[in-house]
């Protein structure tokens, strides 16, 4: 008999004891260790996943900030460029304006200088001409000439009419002092009497006269009373001639330049 039933029983018990021993000393500790380790690994994996997610978030945040920074920088750069361009345009415009103003000022200065020079030359010429004429006429003037002048003046007095005569009559009537008759040379008694007579006849009144000499008249006689004047003199002719010459000069230098014409007119009147 190959089966020994006592041994069978003993082996069953042995086997059961071995099962318990193995459970107690092998399976349980090993499985516990494995479980603990798996939990540890799972925790570490979860931790790693969390860190990865965090890193991804940080990366996204960084990229977003980077993009925003780039955008802002580009915006600032373009703004600065635009501002610099505008400033440049402004500066160039200002410089151009300043240059234009300077050029205009210079041109104006040149023109006024030219005008002044021109005017000076004209005035000098006219003065020279008139000085020569005055000198020539002054040299020619004499007693006989004074008599002729007295005749002419008398004729003119007698020829007065209209508002001129009325105005002079009023002036003579209201005059308190003797009316002054001025001449370049001392008038002889003849012409004085002729003038007194002509006045008396013309205005039908006895008019007191006072005779005086005025060399600036060059040659001629002048009666002035209360702002009214009757005169014949070479100076008047010369003044008239001078005005005519001034008018001619003004026309010659340019019809369009009104201001300049006005200036010349004033100059002519001043002479």
């Amino acid at each position: 008999m190959l089966i020994d039933w006592f041994t069978v029983g003993a082996q069953v018990i042995n086997f059961l004891i071995l099962v318990w021993l193995m459970k107690r000393f092998l399976y349980q500790p090993i499985l516990n260790a494995i479980d603990t380790r798996e939990k540890l690994i799972a925790a570490e994996l979860a931790n790693a996943a969390e860190k990865e997610a965090e890193a991804l978030r940080a990366r996204d945040e960084f990229q977003r900030k980077n993009a925003a920074f780039d955008q802002e920088r580009a915006g600032l750069l373009s703004k600065a460029t635009a501002e610099a361009g505008a400033e440049r345009e402004k500066l160039i415009a200002a410089a151009r304006q300043a240059a234009d103003d300077l050029a205009a000022m210079r041109q104006e200065s040149l023109r006024s200088e030219e005008q002044r020079l021109h005017e000076g030359v004209s005035r000098q010429t006219a003065q020279e001409v008139f000085a020569v004429a005055r000198k020539a006429l002054g040299d020619l003037a004499g007693a006989s000439l004074e008599e002729r002048m007295g005749e002419v003046f008398t004729r003119r007095l007698r020829a007065l009419d209209g508002p001129a005569k009325a105005g002079l009559a009023d002036a003579l009537a209201t005059a308190t002092a003797p009316v002054t008759v001025r001449s370049a040379f001392d008038l002889p008694a003849g012409p004085r009497a002729a003038i007194q007579q002509a006045l008396n006849e013309t205005f039908a009144a006895e008019i007191p006269l006072h005779f005086a000499t005025a060399p600036d008249l060059i040659g001629g006689i002048e009666l002035a009373a209360g702002g009214h004047k009757v005169a014949w003199s070479i100076a008047d002719y010369l003044t008239s001639l001078e005005a005519d010459v001034g008018e001619l000069l003004r026309q010659g230098t340019g019809d369009g330049e009104q201001g300049r014409g006005e200036t010349e007119k004033a100059v002519a009147h001043g002479n």
Partner: peptide
């Protein structure tokens, strides 16, 4: 041993 295998 057949006893052991029988026991198992």
């Amino acid at each position: 041993s057949l006893s052991t295998t029988t026991a198992l």
